[in-house]
Design a protein around this nucleic acid. Structure first.
Lengths: 160, 160
DNA sequence: CCTTGAACTCAAGTTCACTTCAACTTGAAC
DNA sequence: GTTCAAGTTGAAGTGAACTTGAGTTCAAGG
């Protein structure tokens, strides 16, 4: 771990595609670690790029920071995932995606039914009925699993 | 529109499944309207229940408040949707669901590829590569459409 | 009349995953 | 030695869709 092998913020940022602020945030959250230069600047090991790739992939699948942290922690000794690790993890992720797809398809099925009846009735229409099979959940979204609830902003790129 | 036909907050709330606070919020946002009692309490017309059912359904599909407001406004004269209206609207919603499903399936396809290679490499793995085909988007989520970004809290029910 | 539960308002809080800002310091090149 | 891009910090802001809280008033029953 020669100091020549350590990368500064800018390089990690451009190579990973994450903004510096995001990388600092991930460090604060314990998803990655950094060394410091004499003057206090961050110096990253190369492996951090892999971790960041993992973080991006996990985030694409819809995992929260907390879940990503757990998943990273489960990799023994903070190592880069082996093929076996990755196999196990991606199985997990795949199930998550399958669940999400299934939920949307159920929703669509309900919609298709309702096209026929044109009802949208509180009493008989399962698609919008709060007290029926899509019972006691949050306010707006009843048929969707937690993982498919509404998005949050994520500012669009200022370039372009 | 006899005053006997107007429903108070509690009844609208329990029949629709929305919290009173949510209903007040929807009113403030212009999704529904209410009359007032002599003392200033809200009195709702029965039709509001249908509107709320519509709001729930739309919210299930993932529409924002803004989109729901637009969609409601497009119903001429604030009327309850006719069969034709509903047909048009549900076609729109169906397309949205189809897009979301397709996006998840693309994502899953990428994941399946990666199980084979076990790579998760910044250079070659499209699933986590920021600069490749899943190019310039927000920070975390690259392959997901805006409609499928991360959820927001929605407090769990305190009853139960 | 009195109590009690339901409703009211308005401001502030919540969550998540970051970004933005202001004010300052580093460090590499010239 | 000067310059200036790149880096640092901590606090505050963002957005959606509500919820919570404090303090007050309404309305129906007894």
């Amino acid at each position: 771990m020669n100091s020549r092998d350590l990368l500064p913020m800018g390089e990690i940022s451009s190579r990973s595609g994450f903004a510096a602020s995001a990388i600092r945030y991930y460090e604060a959250e314990g998803l990655i670690t950094a060394h410091r230069s004499a003057g206090g600047q961050r110096r990253f090991e190369r492996g951090v790029l892999r971790r960041l790739a993992f973080i991006r992939a996990a985030s694409n699948v819809g995992l929260t920071i907390e879940e990503i942290r757990d998943e990273l922690a489960r990799l023994p000794g903070n190592r880069t995932p082996t093929k076996a690790d990755w196999h196990r993890i991606s199985k997990h992720w795949r199930k998550r995606l399958d669940d999400q797809i299934a939920a949307l398809q159920r929703l669509k099925g309900g919609l298709d039914n309702c096209i026929g009846c044109g009802c949208l009735s509180l009493r008989s229409c399962a698609f919008s009925n709060a007290g029926d099979w899509a019972a006691e959940r949050g306010p707006g979204a009843q048929l969707l699993p937690d993982t498919l609830r509404r998005p949050h902003p994520v500012k669009r790129d200022s370039s372009s």
